[in-house]
Amino acid sequence: MNNNVLNQVLMLFLMLLVGIYASKMKYIDKKMNAGLSNLLLKITLPLLIINSFITMKFSKSVLNVGEDILLYTLIIHIVLVLFSKFAYMKVNDAQKGISKFVTVFSNSGFMGYPVLRSIYGENGVFYCAIFGIILNLFMFSYGIMALKNTKGNSLKELKRAAVNPSIIATVIGFFIFILKIKLPHLIALSINSVGSMTSPLSMIIVGIMLADINLSDLFKDKLVYILTIVKLLIVPAITFVVLKLLNANQTVIGVIVVLEAMPAASNAAVMSLQYGSDENVALKHIFITTVLSIIIIPLVIKLVV
């Protein structure tokens, strides 16, 4: 296994501990953390995405892989939505929505970029951005409906997903890439510098969220154990089998399986609170899957990359 990948995962975990420490010491409160989350989602992450297009050399093969990732990510999310629909039929209504949400959506936005970057270089950031297009479209449409435990279409949420800053950044970066636009050196350097804040900032934010977890209650929730097994083991396995059956190439399999093996999406707790689902289950699940990802992610990388 590539030691750089293992070091990257361990470094992310140490950054997470910094967030927990900052919260415990009252350096950052929930209001400040909400501001940091907005800073990341609306500024640093979009700039990281744009920077990946700026620094990437034009290659038809990279574009072809990107197209495949877009298509296969769409298929995988449809499969996972159907799987979650039947897997949690007996879960009570208050917890059914968050169970579906954390099964379908991974923390690819926060943890995916630095991990794929360590494996595939700047191409990895590009691949993660393509994956994020589908993830965001599903998260802000199906994800919201699941948390609300409602049926029917959600065109309003789908439109909201389409104007997500990360998707806009992907479109901008794509045009820069295709048209071979050369940005002034100072602007490109600034984009790179601010974008590089994404990884440490994202893990510190997650750490701050996890600092409120009551460890004594953490190991009493049977549902959290089930969700953790599903998220870290069953979902990557389903993804791998489906992609193999579809004859996806090795790079596509590696990218998508690794991203699906990421911990639960870190905004699951915030969105579950906002839309009336069980945020306590979300926080516990985020904590356990994030800790266990130190073992799971390097193992998955060794098996599929």
Rank of each mutant, 00 (worst) to 15 (best):
V163M: 13
A161Q: 11
T170L: 14
N149R: 12
C128Y: 02
M145C: 10
I181P: 12
L179G: 03
F175N: 13
F177D: 02
I176Y: 08
T170P: 00
S190D: 08
L158A: 08
N192W: 00
L155W: 14
G152C: 10
P184T: 09
I133E: 03
I168E: 05
N192S: 15
I133H: 00
S190V: 07
L179I: 13
T198M: 15
M197A: 12
G152A: 07
S193H: 00
T198K: 04
T150K: 10
N164K: 10
A162H: 06
S193E: 04
I167N: 07
G132C: 04
S190N: 05
I130W: 06
A146F: 09
L179A: 15
G132S: 10
C128D: 09
F175C: 06
F126P: 01
E157S: 14
S196W: 02
S141H: 05
G195H: 12
I204C: 07
K148R: 15
S141A: 14
I134C: 02
R160A: 08
Y127F: 10
T170N: 03
F131E: 03
V171M: 10
P165D: 05
I172D: 06
A162Q: 02
K180L: 09
L147I: 12
P184Y: 09
V206D: 04
L135G: 00
I130H: 02
L158R: 06
S141R: 08
L201M: 13
F138G: 02
S141Y: 07
M203I: 01
I176S: 00
F174D: 09
E157W: 07
M145H: 00
I187T: 10
F126T: 01
P165L: 07
V171H: 00
I181L: 15
I178W: 03
I205T: 09
S141V: 03
L201H: 07
I130S: 02
R160G: 07
I205C: 05
C128S: 15
P200W: 08
F177W: 14
E157N: 14
N164V: 09
S202V: 07
F175H: 04
I191A: 04
L135C: 08
G195N: 10
F175W: 11
L155I: 08
L147T: 13
G195A: 05
I187N: 01
K151Q: 14
L189I: 00
F175M: 13
I205E: 09
S190P: 01
L135D: 10
P165E: 09
F140R: 04
